[in-house]
Design a binder for these strands. Structure first.
Lengths: 214, 214
DNA sequence: ACCTGAACACCGTTCAAGT
DNA sequence: ACCTGAACACCGTTCAAGT
């Protein structure tokens, strides 16, 4: 009896899990291709489940996004960890920021979620956003210590800049060169003024690039 | 008889104009304050007109936005014209870009419209966007001629960067300092490498900041 | 001419009813 | 437990009917 009930329960659970996977597969494909503004009802329809089923698995669009992004976010943070051991701290930071843009732009709507998620503790994406923030912060601080990256920029500013460029990429996904050019401008804006210049003798002339406001 | 018909017609027209103004006033207030995502039906309701009336006056959200922005856009372009006569070409450009951000962020949804409007010839905002593009281009080229601004950046890249920062401002309107910091990074990224430095003797050491891809 | 408001196909979300 | 799908209040948009 108990066995039967358990196996039935397990059956139900696997059925539920299959539904969950089907929803995720449909959402993944839709958000990755053209129709990023697909409605949740449409996702349910394509996945062959009732609307209620979708909303119990994923009570909001953010929850669905979080499920889609979870593994990739973890990989991105692991990559940051790895890059903390790289020889050139500035290059490590900039490479990771480029990765982050690709990561964010993979599904439509992520740039806004990333920008809002850190501040909104109620968001299902809050935990992931904080992890990304932390990774960015570690890489930034390390690059700032080598004095290759300006000292007056804060982690949340870097995140905002990356979100902003990801938003542009999201708006015009067919313009990779364009976004790359924007990233170049942004990265150069983050650099300390004189180029690394192995001589290291002109660093005294580095002007303050803006008034610190703290 | 003819007089009567004419006066009645005129009466109708003035009534129509009054409706138009009321719609614009409601939309202006809504988009400028919190609820930037107000529905057009709700605008009609608040303005006390039928939904059909609103859609005949403004057949799309972009059309409504264009009506709201028209005068401000003209003023912005006039300001650009004026700044073309300013002493410092780079400062003129950067000041105008800051103005542009404020301009774009005044109503919600404009940053996306600005980014898309230039490329979408069918958009009601196309003409305005092109005018802004042109203004930016003039200021940029002039600043590049003085070699204070990097030569490898294109007008549409500057517009994208400004749109992106405006988008951030739109997402978090209560963080003026934050957006200002992003603008600083962007502007410094646009500068030619060595600071103006009145001595002008170290300019030979300016490294190329990125491989030109054209 | 200009306006109205019901109507349409949709959206996100809920929930009683089923298994 | 889990799922279904009708139902709700909304959205942008259209259009027959009124003045």
């Amino acid at each position: 009896m108990v066995d039967q009930a358990e196996s039935q329960e397990r059956g139900m659970r696997s059925h539920a899990r299959r539904n969950r996977e089907r929803i995720l597969a449909v959402a993944r494909e839709a958000l990755a291709s053209r129709d990023g503004d697909i409605s949740l009802n449409e996702v349910a329809r394509r996945a062959g489940v009732g609307t209620g089923t979708l909303f119990r698995h994923f009570p909001s669009r953010d929850a669905l996004l979080e499920a889609l992004l979870h593994d990739r976010t973890a990989a991105l943070c692991a990559e940051a960890e790895r890059l903390l051991g790289a020889a050139d701290a500035a290059t490590a930071l900039f490479d990771w920021l480029a990765d982050l843009i690709s990561h964010v732009a993979i599904y439509q709507g992520v740039s806004a979620a990333l920008l809002a998620g850190s501040r909104d503790e109620g968001s299902e994406l809050h935990r992931s956003c904080r992890a990304v923030d932390l990774a960015a912060e570690s890489l930034l601080i390390r690059a700032q210590r080598t004095e290759q990256v300006r000292a007056d920029v804060r982690p949340d500013e870097v995140i905002s800049l990356v979100s902003a460029l990801s938003w542009v990429k999201e708006q015009s996904p067919d313009r990779d060169d364009h976004v790359r050019a924007l990233l170049t401008v942004m990265v150069d804006g983050l650099r300390t003024f004189p180029s690394p210049g192995e001589q290291g003798e002109q660093q005294g002339t580095t002007p303050p690039r803006r008034a610190t406001d703290s």
